[in-house]
């Protein structure tokens, strides 16, 4: 989770980084690594590609440290930079498993009941695998926006900056993502029920 370093510690770490202290690089990177990994893995199943991309991102900052005036170790900045690198790399390596659905939205399935009982808390929490499966069936862009909203806990404004789309589109996409998730959830649950019977 988020570690809460004081401003002075933060400042000191940044200074050490600028001076070429590789340990400071490690500490600063450590704080963002998990989030960046969890984000990037939405786009490719190849964990090594993701790790390479994150490593390249931090090494790039390391090599540019003499020219940096402000800390680049800001989550939104890092996410944006990683997103660019990742897309470039995936395009190069053609390892993108299903690139086509990144920008194309699957049309909304029609009968989404207003049932709110779909989130039966216990069942929901206990079945992490199930929700992962439901999530993984969403288009990449919806997975990405759910990540930014619920993992990064970002506001719609911040998300619109990262995804380069307007606020209203962000809100719409989020709504659509939750709705599709609900649909997927039911089909997964049904499968499980059948299996258990």
């Amino acid at each position: 989770m988020k570690d809460n370093l004081s401003h002075i510690e933060e400042e000191r770490l940044w200074e050490r980084f600028k001076e070429g202290d590789s340990e400071a690089l490690g500490l600063l990177s450590r704080r963002h690594y998990r989030a960046l990994f969890n984000y990037a893995i939405k786009f490719t199943k190849d964990r090594e590609v993701v790790k390479d991309c994150i490593q390249d991102l931090f090494l790039e900052l390391w090599e540019r440290r003499d020219y940096l005036t402000q800390t680049p170790f800001v989550r939104i900045y890092l996410i944006k930079a990683l997103r660019n690198n990742l897309f470039r790399k995936i395009r190069q390596e053609r390892k993108f498993t299903d690139a086509e659905d990144l920008d194309t939205e699957i049309p909304l399935s029609d009968h989404i009941s207003a049932e709110s009982s779909w989130i039966e808390s216990e069942l929901f929490l206990e079945n992490e695998e199930k929700i992962k499966t439901a999530l993984s069936k969403l288009p990449k862009r919806q997975q990405e926006i759910i990540f930014l909203k619920f993992y990064e806990n970002l506001s719609n404004d911040q998300i619109s900056e990262i995804l380069d789309m307007n606020r209203q589109s962000v809100a719409n996409l989020l709504h659509r993502a939750l709705t599709s998730l609900k649909t997927n959830w039911f089909s997964v649950a049904k499968l499980l029920l059948l299996f258990w019977k």
Binding site: R34, F37, N38, I41, I119, S121, F124, L125, E128, I131, K132, L135, I146, F147, K149, F150, Y151
Partner: peptide, 13 residues
């Protein structure tokens, strides 16, 4: 539950 599970479901590493 929704927030927490969507948070936790993201963790892959």
């Amino acid at each position: 539950a929704l927030v927490l599970s969507l948070y936790q479901a993201q963790d892959e590493i």
